[in-house]
């Protein structure tokens, strides 16, 4: 489908410029591609490879390791129900079964209208709020079958559109390093001692 748009290519170049080595920008750029298209296309991976200076096979090698990168379209809302220990103790097995029934899909599937994809997630660091879930990585705590149904109805009706952007968009605030304030990336072969470390000092010891 799509390579990175011209705007996103500019953004991609500014992200690459922060790192001592361009390949370090791979994961952020894959996120950018997923934000643009909702999933990571082969064309975007090829484009990222060109920008970073590695083969598209290498891009795929990295991309395929990470759970969050989807290499086929998913629903507008990705619903991740935590199935780990604290949530299991508090009833996530039942919640997941309820979700499957309510959405009419099994884990890993997308509803025919393309609105929801259901997944079981590993611990999402909200264990004291079990059972919990994320919709496009936005939390819902202490979820009951009733509150799950309300959530699904609200999402299907287009509510929460402000709070929960379409799948692919993570942080809506990006780091911007202003040129006049940047210290700049430090290359691994730049052997200079930092100026604030006194000559004789080897740094903290």
């Amino acid at each position: 489908m799509a390579r990175l748009s011209p705007d996103n290519e500019v953004l991609a170049r500014s992200i690459i410029a922060r790192y001592p080595r361009p390949k370090s920008a791979l994961i952020p750029l894959l996120h950018l591609a997923q934000e643009q298209d909702g999933w990571v296309t082969d064309e975007a991976m090829a484009h990222i490879g060109e920008l970073v200076g590695v083969s598209s096979a290498e891009v795929l090698g990295t991309c395929s390791f990470y759970e969050m990168f989807k290499r086929e379209p998913v629903g507008r809302y990705l619903v991740n129900i935590c199935t780990n220990i604290s949530c299991v103790l508090m009833g996530s097995d039942d919640l997941l079964a309820h979700a499957e029934e309510r959405l009419g899909v099994t884990v890993g599937e997308t509803t025919p209208d393309g609105t929801f994809t259901l997944e079981g997630a590993e611990c999402i660091a909200a264990c004291t709020e079990a059972p919990c879930l994320q919709v496009n990585y936005r939390y819902r705590y202490k979820v009951t079958p009733e509150s799950f149904d309300e959530l699904v109805d609200a999402l299907a009706a287009g509510q929460f559109a402000d709070e929960i952007p379409a799948h692919g968009t993570l942080a809506r605030v990006r780091q911007v390093i202003p040129a006049d304030r940047a210290a700049g990336p430090v290359a691994p072969d730049d052997g200079r001692q930092p100026v604030w470390i006194p000559e004789a000092d080897g740094g903290a010891s």
Partner: peptide
Amino acid sequence: NEAYAAGLVGRNIMGSDFSVDVVLHWGAGA
């Protein structure tokens, strides 16, 4: 972003000779 603008991160932090960029990086689930 706020800290950069206030001279607390980046070049010559608080007017000193201490300079360092802090780069925010995200993972992708693993």
